[in-house]
Design a protein around this nucleic acid. Structure first.
Lengths: 378, 378
DNA sequence: CATGTTTGTTAGTAAAGCTTACGAACATAC
DNA sequence: GTATGTTCGTAAGCTTTACTAACAAACATG
């Protein structure tokens, strides 16, 4: 595990060994997507020669990442192929989801993103160092429970997180400039990746949920945030605050006063607490009124998203959050509004759906981040 | 499933010679940004060794791209350095701007993006093949006027343009699936790059106008379009229609009927013809009423941009179009609206300004596209 | 049983950037 | 005036990487 893929940044010199890293990831990616291939298969798919693939495979086997599965059963002319696959039990990934309002969730995941062990810690109102201690405790439990070497720790955190894994601002947790990635890396001695929860989520949806390469995931919970994938790459923004749409004002007809002081922020229409508050009013008791409330929230989301969908030419918008509230009147009002407010010829085919990954989306996204940074696969 | 496989398809293999290309561009970029450097200077700046730089420089001199300027005058110990620079007169670039309503503009530009010869062709209502013939004619004149080899032809076209330079749709010109890049490349035997006009414009603003790496340029003319730069890379979108915001509905209070059939499209508020129509009404004759109209248009732009600025965490928005209309009440209303409708902590520092490049912005953007694709500099 | 096919490996080549070393050309100290 | 140190650009040889060519092993098929 010494040699890892390094990003080939522009305005940085390129060395011959970067080529190797690239092709290494290419081999891993080929097997990751669909295992049980021979060296010759990989060569044909990647365009590399069998010789080069053999060398790379030998290296990866020595590192414990690949295993030979024995000969292919199929009966055809020629020397039988030796099938290879990622050793999907050789490593585990620790994923942490810090985005829930009252609980930190963690899990052990295999290289396919499947969850085995799962641990939770009640937040109980903790903030600052106390909350940090709970994160460390969670990671501690999971690392201890690991039955194989830990490939890395991935963390989906609320708030604004920079590229070095420093949580610049997470109001609910009282974190400001907390170098979470560095702290965990030092504490556990394994690679750590920390990113915004919605960014993690869109990565999971892309890798495991079939999302396109240009898509937006709107995460509706205690607050409202979004993760954007453009050309297959997550967007971070000029101040690492991309996707922070909760406090964008929607529409031109006022709205409720928001905690931030403005009127008509997206969160006042759409956050789960606000939605529940409105649904729990006596006058909204029956199903009909309930539907009106949800449709109105959905419309507002559509109004806010229309300029974004139009400007970015998004083909897909995905919702993550409580299905009982989102997946129905709300979602259909959103997609309807989106279509009415954008150009049909170009954006008419924008699709909107719930996440396919349910509440584990951030945990699995955290795993994707580790896979991507450590192996170059996704 | 097809989409999934496509999304997860690994990128292509890397060969050793790609390294060379990368480092070649690095040397060019270093000299392009700020010329008059020695081989040793370049080595220090890029991190490459003097040996490697010497080899690359020899190659580039042989190709006519670099020239030795003689020895450095400065007096300091050691062997005097031989200064190098891009041979900025060794090549010219042909830039074409097809985005104006009634005229096609073309120019010869040097490697610094400075314009020398300039040619115009009246469109006179031409569409389809007739319009295409005028493009070819324009290019023909410029290629004939070139006093040095043509590095390439860059074209900023209205409408939707794919990555291969096919104009998928340009309603005003009656083009649908016109392979403009291929046609011009075959006709003139030089590399051609065709892209959307607003995309070209944001590239120009980035290279020559000091725009940040995450910025949006809104081009207001006969229609309204935008170019987006995210992390220094232009955004194309899932259907190559990124930036097509003219027909996004703004606000929740109706608006004028648009040519597209909807009510309250951004263009109904902001396109120059519509603005003029409103300003020319008798009741809007005096300066005060004029201001109200412009402020209202600016507000609408702000309303439309707020979700985009928030979602993308843009630091900079740039306007391109007639200064007399845009740079005043309209712009200040836009920035005010933007700030009122996005989160101050994160987006409060969003800046809005007119382009620094005036009406030549698309021509210069076309040159940037050629420089970028041919030399890897920008 | 001969033939053809496929697999994976060995041997040698080309390209790229690196380190080490060196001559040339200069400033400065004595 | 000479010795010393510095800087520049180049030459020679090394390492890494992927490539081509060739081959033995193992299989199916006529």
């Amino acid at each position: 595990m010494t040699q890892l893929r390094k990003a080939l940044r522009p305005s940085t010199k390129a060395l011959p060994e970067y080529t190797r890293g690239h092709n290494r990831s290419l081999v891993l990616q080929t097997l990751y997507r669909d295992g049980r291939r021979s060296r010759a298969d990989i060569a044909r798919e990647t365009g590399l020669t069998r010789v080069t693939v053999s060398a790379l495979v030998a290296e990866l086997i020595a590192e414990g990442l690949l295993v030979e599965l024995g000969q292919r059963e199929e009966t055809r002319p020629g020397k039988p192929a030796t099938l290879l696959d990622l050793d999907r039990s050789a490593f585990v990934i620790v994923g942490l989801d810090l985005s829930e309002h009252s609980v930190f969730t963690g899990a052990l995941l295999d290289l396919d993103g499947a969850i085995s062990t799962r641990v939770e810690v009640e937040l109980a109102g903790s903030t600052g160092d106390e909350a940090l201690a709970k994160v460390v405790d969670l990671a501690e439990q999971l690392v201890a429970a690991a039955t194989a070497p830990v490939l890395g720790i991935g963390v989906g955190s609320p708030g604004v997180v920079d590229l070095g894994g420093v949580v610049l601002s997470a109001p609910n947790l009282g974190w400001n400039g907390l170098p979470l990635q560095a702290l965990l890396a030092e504490r556990f001695g394994v690679p750590v990746v920390v990113a915004n929860d919605a960014n993690a989520a869109i990565l999971a949806e892309h890798s495991f949920g079939g999302a396109a390469s240009d898509a937006m995931l709107v995460k509706i919970g205690h607050g409202v945030g979004a993760g954007l994938l453009l050309g297959g790459t997550p967007l971070f923004g000029s101040r690492f605050a991309a996707g922070e749409i909760g406090h964008v004002v929607v529409g031109t007809d006022g709205g409720a006063v928001c905690a931030c002081g403005k009127r008509g922020c997206l969160e006042t229409w759409l956050s789960i607490p606000n939605l529940h508050a409105r649904l729990d009013r006596p006058e909204n008791a029956d199903a009909r009124e309930r539907d009106v409330v949800l449709r109105e929230a959905g419309e507002r989301l559509g109004i806010a998203l229309a300029p974004v969908v139009g400007a970015l030419d998004l083909g897909e918008v995905i919702l993550s959050g409580p299905t009982d509230l989102l997946d129905g009147a709300l979602a259909s009002a959103t997609v309807e509004t989106l279509r009415n407010r954008t150009m049909a010829e170009f954006h008419g085919s924008v699709t909107l759906r719930m996440t396919a990954l349910g509440p584990d989306i951030v945990l699995r996204g955290a795993a994707v981040m580790v896979l991507s940074s450590r192996l170059g696969v996704s």
